[in-house]
Computed example of a mutant assay.
Amino acid sequence: MDRRTLLRAAVAGGAAAFSGSLWAGAAVAAPAQPGPSPYGPLGTADANGIRLPAGFTSRIIARSRQTVAGTSYTWHDAPDGGACFPAGTGWIYVSNSEITPNGGASAVRFNADGSIASAYRILSGTNQNCAGGATPWATWLSCEEVSLGYVYETYPQGGTTAVRRAAMGRFKHEAAACDPDRKVIYLTEDETNGCFYRFRPTNWGDLSAGTLEVLVAGTATSGPVTWAPVPDPSAASTLTRSQVSGAKRFNGGEGCWYADGTCWFTTKGDNRVWAYDAVNQRISLAYDDSLVSGTAPLTGVDNITGARSGDLYVAEDGGDMEICLITPDEVVAPFLKITGQSSSEICGPAFSPDGTRFYFSSQRGTSGSSSGGITYEVRGPFR
């Protein structure tokens, strides 16, 4: 039985969106190569400047420094990492603000029919909030992308003050992904010689205490790895990435996504998507633009998310201003393209809880400035 048939059987049987066994083998065998998208070619740009496959439509949800429609809330500058959460009969999309000072994060709450119910601030007074990750207990981990930055646990429903989680280490945080099977949280570091970390809370669901570990391996792009504790997560005298001999280096850690035994993370410095097989403790390459036959469709790799189909969606920081998908059949192809915004980057890809709506932002929009950010929604026949 091939991987596509296995994937369909898993989805039909109500299995998790991704299967680590399907994907880990694929990633080890060979990185993804260009091919036709399961949704077909991109059409001409719509009224919002978005090129989409047939059957898909876009709408603008919010613009930086403008009031979110139907609310009195002004949307933040430089929208970045994001995620969706269930909320009653509707849902919430949260978005970071990658500015200094007073970055933080905001939320938009949607009614069951997709109309906007409210918008509000969930984190204030922090710096350069880039990406992050959702937890199984429905909080949003907002990460500071500054030297000695912190992770803040925020509450998308509102009404609860965000909490600094110092035990998760001080470094140039980028993204986070929760692994409920091993009860750890993976963390990326946006440095040219950064590391890949995991945090083991003392009690799962409580991030106030725990152990920060760093991945240790050789220089190879695939093979077995181990983990070692970081002696001083506070980095009081030595940077976290410099505390453990043999810690593996990654060139500009970006997005991070976990599903069913595999943690996927991206590195922008070398345009790679990595797969960490948490079951067998191995790493491999799911994508590398230098190993592509012909023209690479995906460059400037950044934020990453997954769909129920098993497809990965990878946003570009620059590149062709596209969101590309990588299928379990090891095919990489454009899913959408933003036109007229070459001085921006695409951030915060996330699916609504039911998988029918897809959110993302153009951080600097048409102006090329952090004050010109635009947040979008796409609807269509997602598989």
Rank of each mutant, 00 (worst) to 15 (best):
I50P: 00
S64P: 03
P53Q: 07
G35H: 08
G55F: 07
I61N: 06
A26S: 14
F56P: 08
A24T: 14
A26I: 12
F56H: 09
L52N: 06
A9C: 08
L52I: 07
G13R: 10
A32Y: 08
F56A: 07
A27V: 11
G14K: 11
A9R: 15
Q33K: 09
A69T: 13
Q33L: 11
I60K: 12
V11T: 14
P41W: 06
G13V: 06
A10E: 13
G13D: 12
Q66H: 11
A9G: 15
I60L: 15
A17Q: 02
G40W: 10
S19N: 05
S72Y: 00
D46P: 02
A29K: 14
G14D: 12
W23I: 14
G70W: 09
G70E: 10
I61D: 06
A26T: 14
G35K: 08
T5P: 00
P41H: 04
A29L: 13
A45E: 11
T74C: 01
P36G: 08
A47T: 12
P53T: 08
A69M: 02
I61W: 01
G43P: 05
A29M: 05
S21E: 14
P38W: 09
G70S: 06
T5D: 13
T44P: 07
L6K: 12
A32F: 09
A62D: 01
P53V: 07
R4P: 00
G20H: 10
D46V: 01
F56Y: 11
A27K: 03
R65K: 05
L7N: 15
A29Q: 15
G25C: 00
G13W: 07
G35R: 09
S72G: 15
L52M: 05
P38L: 08
Y39C: 07
A62Y: 04
V11E: 12
R51P: 02
A17S: 09
S19W: 03
A54E: 13
A15S: 11
R3I: 12
A45T: 06
A12T: 12
W23C: 03
I50W: 04
R63E: 15
T5V: 10
I60V: 15
A30W: 10
A62M: 03
Y39H: 13
P31D: 11
L6S: 10
G20R: 09
A29T: 13
L52S: 03
Q33T: 08
V11M: 07
A30Q: 15
G49R: 04
L52D: 05
V68G: 03
L42M: 02
A62E: 03
P36N: 10
S58M: 02
A32T: 05
T71I: 14
A62C: 04
A45N: 09
Q66D: 10
P34A: 07
I60W: 00
T5Y: 01
T57M: 05
F56G: 09
V11G: 01
G43N: 06
D46T: 02
T74F: 00
A54M: 03
S37Y: 10
Y73S: 02
P41Y: 04
G25N: 11
G70C: 09
Y39G: 03
F56M: 08
Y73F: 15
V28H: 12
L22H: 13
P41N: 04
R59Q: 12
A54S: 14
D46K: 04
A47C: 00
G14H: 13
A16H: 06
G40L: 09
G43F: 05
T71W: 14
A47P: 02
D46M: 01
L22R: 06
A32H: 09
L22C: 00
P41E: 04
S64I: 04
R65W: 00
Y39P: 00
S37N: 07
R65H: 02
